[in-house]
Design a protein around this nucleic acid. Structure first.
Lengths: 185, 185
DNA sequence: AGCAGGATATATACATATGATATAAGGGCG
DNA sequence: CGCCCTTATATCATATGTATATATCCTGCT
């Protein structure tokens, strides 16, 4: 799914500005399975406007750039429906963390364990964020997606907690009591 | 991590051709956490060669394009080490499937359930592939990564199996006994 | 026997996406 | 009072993905 379709989809849930779309994708419930930034969202919205798939209504604000509120048109909704009829492409996951572990034969176990511990911290953080998202009202679809993301985060967290000492065999008596205390859930 | 660094990393595990690198990324144990294609790999290798981070040795074959076997240089290994010292960027997951579920208020529950069932099938397939990878000899890092991927696949599979009827509330008596029989693990 | 499709192998053009930067003003905090 | 974060838009250079081109061999199907 390209960014244009992503924008159509988000606008199908209600009108929004480019700024708001960016926030949804960067932080909201969309953040688990998509990513995009200003550099792709703004050009996409401009293009969609030119093609008549969305309309743009400017709302002037004092001393700020005008808010440009985008609304899906009927043609846009049809395009989105067509797009959703095609079977979705495969998931694509990119993880510099996992890549680093694979290439890191030369890296010290201590450094690897730090990386893993950072990761554990981040997963905890994300789980908290996702759980607070769930408290809001949401559609069946949104709830399904957020709980899916939550399940994945939990699995990653548990895996890392269980296996964090795995690279340590060369130096079994490492001093990381502090780290372990911090990690005790 | 950009494609250049990814190539350096793969070459740090042993020399390879562009074609082989592509296969590793598209199908091998790298496929879980990275993706790249000819269009990015070949230019990256050319650039790395010009910069002296890899060397290229051509091996002529009868009636086929020469094999270009790339080897990491000392400078390349140092660049990789430097790169791995930086803390890895956040994971990025993109899923057209989950996006479709979010935008699919208008799509029929039957269609959604088909999508989910396809997904279940694919996860099963991937789990089998990952499990056969594990039978081979591999480094601690590789095993860690593949088992991580396996855990994630299992979670996704179980989640989808458990919740596949969730969109069905509007039409509780759907005839999908066949599908359910097929899904019985 | 013949032929289609997939594997081997490299390469590039074009469209799209990312990341950094620019502009401009308000509010919170030490 | 200055510093950084938030609101709000936008563009540019570079990186990446998609599709295509070229050429040959092998496997399976009819």
């Amino acid at each position: 799914m390209d960014i244009r379709t992503l924008c159509l989809g988000i606008l199908s849930l209600g009108e929004a500005t480019g700024y708001e779309i960016n926030k949804m994708v960067a932080e909201g419930s969309f953040s688990f399975f998509s990513q995009a930034s200003f550099g792709s969202i703004y050009p996409a919205l401009t293009k969609l406007t030119n093609e008549g798939l969305v309309t743009c209504r400017a709302e002037s604000q004092q001393k700020r750039p005008d808010k440009k509120i985008y609304t899906l048109t009927k043609a846009g909704r049809e395009t989105l429906t067509q797009e959703l009829k095609r079977s979705p492409g495969p998931d694509r996951n990119r993880s510099d963390f996992l890549a680093a572990l694979l290439f890191a034969e030369a890296v010290s176990p201590a450094r690897i364990q730090d990386l893993i511990d950072d990761r554990i911290y981040e997963h905890r953080h994300k789980i908290t964020a996702f759980e607070s998202l769930l408290e809001e009202d949401m559609s069946v679809g949104s709830r399904f997606v957020v709980e899916y993301g939550l399940a994945m985060q939990h699995t990653a967290l548990e895996y890392l907690k269980k296996r964090r000492r795995i690279f340590d065999s060369a130096k079994p008596e490492r001093d990381d009591h502090k780290a372990e205390a911090k990690l005790a859930s």
